[in-house]
Design a protein around this nucleic acid. Structure first.
Length: 892
RNA sequence: GGGCGAUUAGCUCAGCUGGGAGAGCGCCUGCCUUACAAGCAGGAUGUCAGCAGUUCGAUCCUGUUAUCGCCCACCA
């Protein structure tokens, strides 16, 4: 260690998040600072977390989503709201089951071998093992969730809520069982809902086949994209007004290979223009055909098995994979002369959103929720503004979906999930739905009953999340106080899956909207704009970022540089930028802490102790507080973060700290020094509070060290900064700006002649705006310190201007640098000529504008006045520059 | 077939109620100035996608076109 090992050196030079992040999280949690009891004396501000999957792990989307929520909840908590953020996770039916099944496969077994009960034990084990991983990752991000209120979508309370809702909807006739076409995923082996199907345009074929008219030497040509379904054909349809077929409608056709006799019938559904105008009808494997089948009493013949292989109806193709069969069948049809032609054809093909297998529409018996009556109030709530989407445009997407809503298939042929509370009687055949498990049939009292094998769609329970987490169906204090929640934060990708369903369920069962605001964010993409995904291997692990750069850095990076609802890209360079900002704050604090020695915390400056720079930074601080608060209220978190960044870096550090150095290093003048320290610590402490929701760890670490209210043990207990309007002074800011502009001009001129920064140069000031004279006279030292100017001469009004000097002009101040021997007359002339050109351009633009009658007549008075002032300023500047050039010419 | 978003400096993006456009990174020049080289000071760079309109005035509002992206949609 060097001899300079003094007290100051105890503060590390570099921001090192690893040294304190874990410590503070533990401290907060142990002190229950995240926990909120119902406190009716305070206004509530509640949020429920979008529950991540139990077996999942933190990805960038979660990091963004939870950073946004944490900023909101910390902000409101500091504002004095009764703020609660309820965490928890989702059992994620298909996803979790798939994971466990994959691990069983590795062991060489499967769930059927294991049996339902044993399998579920395995899933619960899995849940225990991995379920808390993401929760601990959320902690490392700094999320201030009320962990005492943590929930799981399959815990007892949620299960009770699910039963209550199911039975109640069933009793109202809104849940029913039906046999119809659903989307079947042959890989997941279950039915899925319409929104779980992703349509993609694919290049396929349109095969033209000819079916013979029975007993005639005549054929009807049909076109199909899925020839293998022909085994299930039970009819051929044409449009009733299609002249081509009018004479044979009602006749019988012979289905090739199968030799089934099928009717040729007419139906309005058929489009005459498409294909041949004749369509084969497979009621068991196509939704439209299913409908036509019902209208025309056609038989439903299932020819594809649940696992995607061909079924018995496919004759010799029985057991063959559906696509293998297609290939072989096409070949056979060609040989038989049934295949007339093949066309290239682009069409939309449905895929399972989970595993991406091609969906097979199949007829089966499933449970459905009737949506129309639930959707209406959900639309109203958004239309009348009770629920607001941020950004607003997402309400349109939401409404459009609800307007075209269709019934929701809620049964899944899985084992992991809420089992459907329906029992079938083997004796009387009745179906009974019940809140409690049944052991006998309520109709015939037979003991021979069995429960429905299926489970509910995961989103069924997620839809109840905002109120089931608060104790519903019990009438808890939490429900009364915290429901509806304030804000729901989520990505646009689950507006239909989740948001819409919560609104419907909330209105139906929570008796109110589930939230006031829906704050929508976009996706975090990779640096090339691609979606981060496992298969691409382009995902960035937030935990890695946290370990390398700190959670605060990650958080700040995620919320700045983008706007609500839009996607963003991940760049390590941006992470570094945020880290540099953290380091900047660290060092600004370090500067103050290193000089805090001898500072009396009880010291309060008198009015006359404040310097211009003190008053300026206090005004700028107040403005920042006001603007940041406004932006947070508007959900413009990125904008708020940017403002704090700019205030800290460009104003507090670049100007204010620099200007305090003279006072801090002068230990003789105690009063001046204490005043500087007072302002420094006041502004820094307040700024830390402003920044706390964004960077909770860093702000806590520093706050603990700087002078603060000793009655509080954490920055989390401080209140959100509030300022009065009179703290903001336009006059002070204008004065300081004039000086800052002058400093910049001098720096610029010095840089141009290559003056060494360490070398001071003489500066001569002349005022064209006399009102500035006093401020500059009083604060000359600012120019000395920040513009390396010494000596400084202030010319009396009307005095002669120096000749052998560089000149610049700003805001009513003329600046002269008598840089003896340094001025290159030609270069200086060129510089001024360029300056003059710029001025002329501006002047002519403004002159033209002010010469425009329309502008003068119609533009607001203050705008006109502003433009006039600008013009006058430019003209004065031009005069000054021209004078300079004449002087230079004389020098030559 | 509908709907939405994007198009601004080399790159990534701000620009929130219309008054000649900014940041970060990158680039160039000079600096280890006792908070910070993860830094300081200075500098360069734009037909704000095209066209038309409204307006005294348009990056911003309206219409239209183009390119890219996304969402929704049961034409075989």
């Amino acid at each position: 260690m060097s001899e300079e090992m003094t007290q100051e050196n105890n503060i590390p030079k570099v921001y090192d998040p690893q040294s304190f992040e874990k410590k503070w999280y533990k401290f907060w949690e142990e002190n229950k600072l995240f926990h909120a009891e119902v406190d009716k004396s305070k206004k509530p501000y509640s949020m429920v977390i979008p529950p991540p999957n139990v077996t999942g792990q933190l990805h960038m989307g979660h990091a963004l989503d939870n950073t946004l929520q944490d900023i909101l909840i910390r902000f409101r908590r500091m504002q004095g709201y009764n703020a609660v953020w309820i965490p928890g996770c989702d059992h994620a039916g298909i996803a979790t089951q798939a994971k466990v099944e994959a691990s069983l496969r590795e062991e060489g077994t499967n769930r059927y071998e294991l049996g339902r009960e044993k399998f579920l034990e395995r899933v619960w084990d899995w849940k225990e093992q991995y379920g808390n991983r993401i929760m601990s990752q959320l902690r490392s991000l700094g999320s201030s969730c009320d962990w005492d209120r943590q929930r799981f979508t399959m815990d007892e309370g949620c299960s009770a809520a699910v039963r209550e809702v199911f039975v109640s909807l069933y009793d109202k006739g809104l849940i029913y069982q039906g046999t119809r076409i659903t989307n079947w995923c042959p890989n997941c082996n279950t039915a899925i809902s319409d929104i779980e199907v992703e349509h993609e345009n694919e290049n396929g074929h349109l095969w033209h086949l000819r079916y013979q008219v029975e007993g005639e030497d005549r054929y009807v040509e049909i076109a199909t994209t899925r020839p293998e379904t022909m085994f299930g054909d039970t009819g051929v349809a044409v449009h009733p007004e299609d002249e081509r077929y009018k004479d044979i409608v009602g006749k019988t056709l012979i289905l090739p290979i199968v030799n089934r006799r099928i009717p040729l019938f007419a139906d309005e559904y058929v489009d005459k223009e498409f294909g041949t105008g004749a369509v084969k009808v497979t009621p068991a494997h196509d939704p439209n055909d299913f409908e036509m089948g019902l209208r025309h009493n056609l038989e439903q013949i299932k020819v594809i098995n649940n696992d995607g292989t061909m079924g018995e109806g496919a004759g010799k193709y029985n057991g063959m994979d559906r696509y293998e069969c297609r290939k072989a069948l096409v070949k056979e049809l060609e040989e038989l002369g049934v295949l007339v032609s093949v066309e290239e054809h682009e069409h939309a093909v449905g895929h399972c959103s989970r595993c991406h297998s091609t969906i097979e529409p199949m007829v089966s018996k499933q449970w459905f929720v009737k949506m129309e009556s639930l959707a209406k109030p959900a639309m109203e709530a958004v239309k009348d503004g009770r629920i607001k989407f941020v950004p607003e445009r997402f309400s349109k997407i939401y409404l459009q979906w609800l307007e075209n809503i269709r019934d929701w298939c809620i049964s899944r042929q899985l084992w992991w999930g809420h089992r459907i509370p329906a029992w079938y009687c083997d004796d009387c055949g009745e179906t009974s739905v019940s809140r409690t498990d049944l052991t006998e049939c309520p109709h015939c009292h037979s003991k021979h009953i069995h429960q429905d094998e299926d489970v509910l769609d995961t989103w069924f329970s997620s839809g109840l999340w905002p109120f089931e987490t608060m104790g519903w169906p019990n009438e808890t204090e939490e429900l009364k106080h915290f429901y509806p929640t304030a804000t729901l934060v989520t990505g646009y990708d689950i507006i239909f899956f989740w948001v819409a369903r919560m609104v419907m369920m909330g209105l139906e069962f929570g008796k109110d909207i589930p939230f006031h605001h829906v704050f929508i964010h976009g996706l975090v993409r990779d640096s090339q704009g691609r979606k981060m995904s496992k298969s691409l291997g382009n995902g960035i692990d937030p935990v890695e970022v946290i370990e390398k750069y700190g959670a605060d850095t990650l958080r700040f990076m995620l919320i700045t540089g983008n706007t609500p609802g839009n996607d963003m890209r991940f760049y390590w360079e941006r992470v570094e930028g945020a880290r540099n900002f953290a380091n900047k704050i660290w060092n600004a604090s370090r500067y103050m802490l290193m000089n805090l020695e001898g500072f009396d915390k009880s010291f309060k400056p008198a009015e006359e102790d404040y310097t211009l720079s003190d008053k300026w930074i206090l005004s700028r601080y107040a403005r920042t507080v006001r603007d940041v608060t406004e932006n947070l209220d508007k959900f413009e978190l990125g904008e708020a973060g940017r403002m704090i960044y700019e205030f800290i870096w460009n104003e507090f550090c670049d100007w204010y700290i620099e200007l305090t150095k003279a006072r801090l290093y002068d230990k003789e003048n105690v009063r001046a020094r204490n005043t500087a320290l007072y302002v420094l610590s006041t502004v820094l402490e307040g700024t830390l509070r402003l920044l706390h929701p964004f960077m909770p760890f860093l702000t806590e670490e520093i706050w603990q060290k700087v002078p603060h209210d000793d009655a509080l043990k954490s920055i989390m207990e401080t209140s959100w900064p509030e300022v009065k309007d009179e703290c903001i002074s336009d006059e002070i800011e204008a004065d300081m700006t004039a000086i800052m502009e002058t400093i910049k001009t001098v720096r610029n001129m010095r840089a141009e002649v290559g003056a060494a920064p360490s070398k001071k140069s003489e500066l001569i000031l002349n005022f064209t705006d006399e009102s500035l004279r006093a401020v500059f006279t009083e604060n000359q030292s600012y120019l000395d310190k920040l513009a390396s100017s010494d000596p400084i001469t202030i010319l009396p009004a009307g005095a002669d201007k120096p000749e052998n000097a560089m000149a610049g002009m700003v805001n009513g101040v003329e600046v002269f640098l008598p840089l003896k021997g340094l001025i290159d007359v030609d270069k200086e002339t060129a510089r001024l000529t360029k300056e003059l050109e710029k001025l002329d351009k501006e002047i002519s633009r403004l002159a033209k504008k002010l010469g425009n009658e329309g502008f003068l007549a119609k533009a607001p008075a203050d705008v006109v006045a502003g433009e006039k002032e600008k013009l006058a300023g430019y003209e004065e500047k031009k005069k000054s520059v021209e004078g300079r050039m004449q002087d230079l010419a004389k020098l030559k």
